[in-house]
Amino acid sequence: MSGVFETGVRVRGWKGYTALILLWQVTASVCFYAMYAVTPFVRDEFGVSATFVGVMLTALTFGYTLFLVPVGSITDEYGEDRVLVVGLVGLGVGAAGVTLAPSYLALLGAVFVLGAFYATAMPGTNKAVFNAIPPERLNTSMGIKQVGVTAGSGISAVLVPWFGATRFGWEVAFLLATAAAAIVSVVFWAVYEASGDGGDTDSVGIRSHFRNRAYALLTAAGFFLGAGLFTTIGYTILYVEEAVGASVVFAGLTLAAAQVFGSVGRVGFGWLADRLSVPLTTSTLYILVSQAGASFLLFLAVTVVDTPPLALVLFSLLGFFILGFTGIYYSCIGSLVPTEGVGSATAGGQIALNCGALLAPPAFGYLVDVRGYATAWTMLALAALVALVLLVALVYRH
């Protein structure tokens, strides 16, 4: 664990370094996840069905997924500093572009660009954590850094519906995200110092990682967990508003609560993994099994929600597990590959999550249109069950 922690960033200790990466992640996630919070307004403004809301989310994830492989390799070869600065600037530009889309097709193009720049997030920030944080603090730091995802999504889940329900309009929230991205990118560029020149990408490329059977099994489980994670974020507001009968503001607060509990889960599970007296791979796998099992049960429970308070409680619990697993997931990935390959390994792991997100939201929306929300949530429960089976198989194999 050499690099920035020993020689680099102009902040003090692992706490200051983690805070800087967290700031970057929060800002980037506000820009990206604002698209999940704006779904009711997109549906009304462009007159599209729940299925086409899912198509929009798929366009966002497709841009994200398509650029993960090159970004992961670039991060490993040249370091994470330039990647993260350019990524945040691009996210700000993409968020502004969404507000200018004159049609649904133009919106899909702007959303694709927004997703493409978010591809810098996981390879860059995860490589930074593995380069800089001492082993005994790694899972805690990874969990704190991953809170930036849920925090950013929670912020957008509150601000976008609130501005959308006022005379200002949802576009103001996106423009505020653009301004925040510009400011934080300057701060990050001024304060952050790269960990080094990177590694040999030819020897630790994504294809070589997938030849590792443990890595392949883990990312296969990630596919199904990613389906649950991104679809939950994408449809919670619509479900609580349309099926439960709450206001759009309360629906936004429900998603925000799920994100808050997801943040607690990411830090709490990371803290637990650091304190279990077993190897890193073993501790993270045990925790992932518990998260997948709990998510399966909670997805089934969501199908019987009939009041706003119950929705708030159940989605908060669901957030703790299905939104709280990613820090442990990336720590487990990092334990299976050499440090110099964390960028590309993270990209492969994120691709697995994103592939689930490419397929699940439009499938969920289609099931909502033809069978109702109960069937759609049951589909996510089955996805969590498949992930559970794969993880249990990996535990026994390990």
Rank of each mutant, 00 (worst) to 15 (best):
Glu242Asp: 10
Tyr33Leu: 12
Leu108Ser: 02
Ile206Gln: 05
Leu57Arg: 03
Ser141Tyr: 11
Ser247Asn: 10
Ala273Met: 05
Ala301Cys: 13
Ala106Phe: 11
Ala106Trp: 14
Trp170Lys: 03
Trp24Asp: 00
Phe5Pro: 11
Asp274Leu: 04
Tyr192Gln: 04
Ala347His: 06
Val113Asn: 12
Gln350Gly: 15
Leu107His: 02
Glu242Ala: 06
Ser141Asp: 04
Leu336Ala: 06
Ser263Ile: 14
Val149Phe: 07
Phe224Leu: 08
Leu385Arg: 04
Ser290Gly: 09
Leu385Asp: 04
Ala292Ser: 14
Val386Trp: 09
Asn131Ile: 05
Ala227Pro: 04
Asp44Pro: 01
Leu138Pro: 03
Ala179Val: 15
Thr281Met: 10
Val191Arg: 00
Val111Cys: 10
Gly234Val: 07
Leu218Asp: 00
Phe261Met: 08
Gly8Pro: 03
Leu280Trp: 09
Ala177Cys: 07
Val149Glu: 03
Gly152Asp: 14
Leu60Val: 01
Ala273Glu: 01
Val186Asn: 11
Ala381Val: 12
Leu318Phe: 01
Val278Cys: 06
Gly348Leu: 05
Ala116Trp: 09
Asp200Ala: 11
Val93Phe: 04
Ala190Arg: 13
Val186Met: 13
Ala227Arg: 04
Glu80His: 08
Ser29Trp: 09
Leu60Tyr: 01
Tyr396Gly: 06
Ala19Met: 13
Gln350Phe: 07
Asn139Glu: 15
Val191Met: 08
Gly199Pro: 08
Asp202Gln: 12
Gly343Lys: 00
Ser29Arg: 10
Gly341Thr: 05
Ser141Gln: 11
Asn354Phe: 12
Ala101Met: 02
Ser247Leu: 10
Leu176Asn: 14
Gly87Pro: 04
Ala59Thr: 15
Glu6Pro: 01
Met122Ser: 13
Gly262Gln: 10
Ala157Gln: 01
Asp197Lys: 14
Gly47Cys: 07
Trp271Gln: 08
Leu217Ser: 10
Val93Asp: 03
Arg397Gly: 08
Thr236Glu: 05
Ser49Asn: 01
Val111Ala: 09
Gly268Ala: 09
Tyr64Gln: 11
Ala363Ile: 15
Val244Ile: 15
Leu107Trp: 06
Ala28Gln: 13
His398Leu: 12
Asp200Thr: 11
Val249Asn: 10
Phe5Glu: 10
Leu272His: 04
Ile233His: 05
Leu312His: 06
Leu88Gln: 05
Glu136Leu: 11
Ala294Asn: 14
Tyr396Arg: 14
Arg211His: 10
Leu367Tyr: 03
Val264Ile: 15
Leu238Gly: 13
Leu255Asp: 00
Phe67Lys: 00
Arg10Asn: 14
Val187Ser: 11
Leu88Met: 13
Gly198Glu: 07
Ala173Leu: 11
Phe296Ser: 06
Phe315Ile: 01
Trp24Gln: 03
